[in-house]
Every structure is written in structure tokens, then in C-alpha cells.
């Protein structure tokens, strides 16, 4: 509801011509502009949502994952290395593209596993454990290609971002699939109950026989894998992998989307739909302001303000 209201209101800003809406009628031009705005926004927001869903699961256990942006960069660097390298020459593009879509995600999940083991086995605080990968991960991504940009043209691979089945970008399908899967996970599976029980009262969960270590490790693996998917989408959109920029500040956007979406950072709740809406809200406002010519710096300030308000109102509602 809130978001629909915002889309309309923001759209008024975008068009910057209030006369677009004439009392009681919406003209064709308006409809097209709206569709375009939504489409652009959904495209931009898909990666935030995909990463945000993983973040929401981690946060629900009472943890946090700062490594997602760096993991995106790593995944994004590996894919072109595969389809631009000798594998493609030897086994053909089909095999190379398959590997370019699976290996980076597996590696990303591996970094998630590392985060999870640091948290559960070494008992590092989540913020520290994932900070380690946050710092080292981007370094690894840069080393993979000696810091060089890898430009490419690979339509089959890029289909994950640029394909438009039924006129909607593929990544939007991926985004909704991730959201639906996560919803299913949280609401219907034992794993989902365990996640919430651990975040709500870890000691009680342990005494009720919940495999606390395994569940916690797994949420970091999921978060890592989702970051891997997002990293691939970003390089596919850009037709180039850039270890310096891929996933930059993504951890902050994902945490913001999670918080704005109504998942408290203290754990025990996982509002997946909220994270989707939170990401949309943040993205819509940012895009809209920039598109009407508001300077980027100012848009950031507005963004911050929205996060502040959203979290404040949730506090009020909770109290």
C-alpha cells in the first residue's frame, strides 16, 4: 500500500508535470511513463532484493553479513575468467557458460560457509567474521584479474540480466523466485522455524535440541550464494566485470532494505516481503530524485531520512 502510494507520488515528481493526471483519467503517456519507471526500478532493485533476502535470514538469527558486496565482486570476476578463458576454447561456449553460472555461485557459497564457520566454530562475532571477508574478499577479487576490468560480449550469459521473457527482465524473475523461495523457507520449513527460534532466544533453542551451529552456518551459506547470483547479474548488465565497483556498498543497501522492511536487527523475525518493499522504497526514491535532476548527494540525504523515518515508525508500532 505504502509503496503503491509512493510510486504514484514519486511518479508525479518524475514526470514533473502535474497536468499529466487529469481528474479521473490517466492518459496513455502517463501509463507508459509509469511502466518505464517501474521497469527501470525493478531492474535496479533486483540485486538489492536478492542480497537483502539473504541478509534478512542472517539478521533473523541475530547475525549480520558485511561480506556480501565483496562476495559479489569475487563471483563477478570469476564468471568472465571462465568463459573468456581456455575452458571455452576446449569445451565450447555451452559448457563454459554453464560453469560461469554455477562455479561463481558455489565459490560465493563457500565464502558464506567460511563466515558461518567463523561465527559458529571460532565464535567470532558475526560483524567481525564477515568484516574479515569484506576486507579480504575485494582484494581477492582484484587479484583475480590483476585489477583490470574484463569487458566482454556474451549474450547467452548476459541473458540473466538482459533477457526479457514476456517483456520483463530475467533478473526480475530471479528476484521474485528468490523472494518466494525464502518465504517458503521461513514459513513452511523446520529450518525457517529454527532460524527464528535461534534469533529469538538462542539458549532456549539449544535446549530444545535445535542444531544451532548448523542452522547458523547455513544462513551464511545462503547469504553468500545469493550475493554470488547478484554479482553475476551486475557483470551481465555491465558487460564487464569490475572488481572495484561490483557490489560496492551493497552490504549497506541490503541492511537498510532489511531494516526498513521491518526485520529488527536484534533477530527473531524475518520479514521477507518487507525487505522487498524496503529495497523498492529506497531504490524508487533514489532513482526518482536523480531522474528529476536532484543531485546524487542530495538524494543520499533523502535516502538516509527515509531509512530513519521507516525505522522510527516501526519502533513506534512495536512499542
Amino acid at each position: 500500500m505504502l509503496v503503491v502510494f509512493n510510486i504514484i507520488r514519486i511518479h508525479n515528481l518524475i514526470s514533473n508535470t502535474p497536468t499529466f493526471i487529469e481528474r479521473g483519467t490517466v492518459n496513455v503517456e502517463y501509463a507508459r511513463a509509469l511502466q518505464q519507471a517501474l521497469s527501470v526500478n525493478l531492474t535496479q532493485v533486483a540485486t538489492i532484493v536478492i542480497v537483502g533476502v539473504g541478509m534478512t535470514l542472517v539478521v533473523a538469527t541475530g547475525g549480520i553479513d558485511l561480506s556480501v558486496g565483496a562476495v559479489m565482486a569475487i563471483a563477478g570476476q570469476i564468471a568472465p575468467l571462465i568463459f573468456l578463458g581456455p575452458i571455452a576454447d576446449r569445451f565450447g561456449m555451452g559448457v563454459a557458460n554453464f560453469l560461469a553460472l554455477t562455479v561463481p555461485i558455489a565459490v560465493a557459497a563457500g565464502f558464506g560457509l567460511m563466515n558461518g564457520l567463523m561465527v559458529t566454530k571460532l565464535r567470532f562475532q558475526p560483524i567481525i567474521a564477515t568484516l574479515v571477508v569484506f576486507i579480504g574478499g575485494r582484494g581477492i577479487a582484484q587479484v583475480l584479474t590483476n585489477g583490470y576490468l574484463q569487458p566482454f560480449k556474451n549474450p547467452s550469459f548476459q541473458y540473466i540480466a538482459l533477457g526479457r521473457p514476456l517483456g520483463i527482465p530475467t533478473q526480475v524473475y530471479i528476484m521474485f523466485a528468490v523472494v518466494l523461495l525464502a518465504l517458503f523457507l521461513v514459513r513452511r520449513t523446520a529450518f525457517g522455524r529454527y532460524v527464528l527460534a535461534i534469533g529469538g532466544n538462542e539458549r532456549a533453542a539449544r535446549l530444545a535440541g535445535v542444531p544451532v551451529g548448523r542452522v547458523k552456518t547455513l544462513v551464511y551459506v545462503i547469504s553468500g550464494a545469493l550475493a554470488g547470483i547478484a554479482g553475476l547479474i551486475v557483470v551481465a548488465i555491465n558487460a564487464a566485470s569490475d572488481a572495484n565497483l561490483n557490489g560496492m556498498n551493497m552490504e549497506l543497501d541490503a541492511i537498510a532494505a532489511t531494516a526498513v522492511g521491518g526485520t529488527p536487527l536484534t533477530g527473531g523475525h524475518a520479514n521477507i516481503v518487507g525487505t522487498l518493499l524496503g529495497a523498492l522504497l529506497i531504490q524508487l526514491v533514489r532513482y526518482s530524485l536523480i531522474s528529476i535532476g536532484v543531485p546524487y548527494e542530495f538524494a543520499l540525504v533523502v535516502n538516509a531520512f527515509i531509512i530513519l523515518l521507516a525505522v522510527y515508525f516501526q519502533r513506534q508500532r512495536a512499542a
Binding site: 520449513t189 523446520a190 529450518f191 522455524r193 529454527y194 527464528l196 527460534a197 529469538g200 532466544n201 539458549r203 532456549a204 533453542a205 535446549l207 530444545a208 535440541g209 535445535v210 527473531g268 523475525h269
Partner: peptide, 26 residues
Amino acid sequence: AEGIVPELSVADNMVLAALPHISRNG
């Protein structure tokens, strides 16, 4: 501190230890 998971429902709290028995493939 060690019994209830306060935010979860009565039902979720009750079946917490029984989840392995009442689920199939998770």
C-alpha cells in the same frame, strides 16, 4: 532466558523440539 522464544507463537514454541518428528524433507 532458557525456555520460551518470546516472539514466536504458542504453537511454534510447543512444537520446537518436535520439528524433526513432524517434518518430512524439512
